[in-house]
Simulated scan of single mutants.
Amino acid sequence: MPLKGNHGWRAYRPLSGFGPAIGRGTPLDLARGPLGAGVAFVVSGAALLLPWLRHGDGFFLIAPFGASAVLLFAVPNSPLAQPWSAVVGNSISALMAVLVLSFLREPITAAALALCLAIAAMVVSRSLHPPGGAVALVAALDPALIDRLGPAFVFAPVMAGTAVLVGLAMIWHRLTGRTYPFRQPETGGPHGTSDQTPARRLGLSPDDLREILEVNRQSSNLGVEDLGRLIAAAEQLAAVHQMDALKCEAFMSRDLVTVSPGTPVGRVAGLFRLHGFTSIPVVTADDQLEGVIFQIDLIRGARRAARRDHRGFVAALTQMTNATGRTAPRARDIMSVGLPTVTRDAPIGELLPLLEDGRAEAVPVMEGSRIVGIVTRSDLVSALARNSARSANA
């Protein structure tokens, strides 16, 4: 009987564990996985027509390749789908079946023994690949196939076919914007140094993350790099929730010094020197935001001019900031556009992912299409310090 009371009908859910455990696929995933697998099978079938892959009077794709394709194209981040797991797992499973059939021909017993040995061999060789079990069964249940092909079955179609699928998966995922093979722990950050971005500095080494996976018996389901990304994302979300009470309006700069799109770059440079700002919004006459100029934009503009005019950087920067008249570069020529923005009542925690990795040094605060303030990294540090002080005194 379902439990009643405050919990209603939801309290009694004995079958909840039998429901879907995988999140909903995105439209991109729906297109990318099935289409990639289909293309791979067409190409694989054509590849097996090559003379060096032929056997007797024909060629064939074996059913377990379909299961391998599901892993390679639908869940390429899985440790079970990596090249070593796929190629070695399928091949060593085929080898176990061939060995079993060399001394045992009773179908059920041979299939059971081949499956057991295949799983054991995959675990020992760290090449666990579920379709490998199907490879062993296909061979063990069809002794005539092994009689015809002999040990060559291990190399073709199994090893060769799997290798073709892996190669196609590498090409397909690169073309469609995914990472395959497996993400490896990053050794550096985006600035050309060994430091990772702040969000990725967990205080845990790759070895620590690997130990966590092994202790919790999850190394077959998740990789070290992905575990690091998940921990970082969880920490960042927790920090955002802790700062929900702090709103951008309380920390933003309101008395803005702005320029118009047509302001000469020399005037912009003068404002940077005068006020010590790191960013200056570019707005229209009615405060409609057009973009933001950061100090680095001046440097980038001078660098482009130096390359274009084939002269030194210092000369280009001097010319750019001292030029007058109609030929002088304008704010619109160097400003950054398409920056993330927030509203007055946005929690200050929302700025953490926007300001932490160096892509932006300030975030405009908007009221409709009008800019009403700006939050810089210094403002964010102040908010974090205040939040820490409150937590310590609580």
Rank of each mutant, 00 (worst) to 15 (best):
T324F: 08
D286E: 15
T263R: 01
L227N: 03
D226T: 12
T278M: 11
R326P: 04
V342C: 06
G301S: 07
I231F: 08
D333N: 12
V268P: 03
V215Y: 13
R307K: 09
A306G: 05
N216V: 07
A285N: 11
I299M: 14
A323D: 14
P340L: 08
E211D: 12
A234M: 11
Q218N: 09
R229I: 11
R311A: 03
N322P: 04
D255C: 05
I296S: 14
L246D: 04
D208Y: 10
G325N: 05
V265K: 02
A233R: 13
T278N: 12
A245Y: 15
A250P: 01
D226L: 09
D345Q: 12
I212M: 14
R254K: 14
G228F: 00
L227I: 07
E214Q: 11
V292K: 01
V337T: 15
V265Q: 08
V224H: 02
A269P: 03
M252P: 00
G291Y: 09
R311Y: 04
G291Q: 07
I299C: 08
R300D: 13
E249L: 13
Q295H: 09
L298E: 03
A245W: 15
V337L: 07
G291H: 07
S336M: 02
D309F: 13
A331I: 02
L237D: 09
V292W: 01
A323W: 08
L256N: 03
R330Q: 14
S205Q: 11
K247F: 04
E211M: 10
V314C: 04
I334T: 06
S260D: 09
M243K: 04
D208M: 10
A315L: 07
P281I: 00
L227C: 08
P329S: 09
L274G: 03
N322M: 14
V268F: 01
G276S: 03
Q218D: 08
Q218W: 08
A331T: 02
V224D: 02
S260Q: 07
A323L: 14
V257Q: 13
D207Q: 13
I299K: 11
R308M: 06
R326K: 06
D226Q: 14
A232L: 06
D286W: 06
N221P: 05
L204A: 08
R304M: 10
S336D: 03
D208N: 14
R273G: 02
T341D: 01
A323S: 15
S260F: 00
S253I: 13
A239R: 03
T327I: 05
V292S: 01
Q295A: 13
D255I: 06
V265A: 13
T343S: 15
S253Q: 07
M320P: 09
L339E: 00
R267C: 06
R307C: 08
A315R: 10
V283T: 07
R229P: 02
I296A: 14
P340A: 11
V257H: 14
T318A: 14
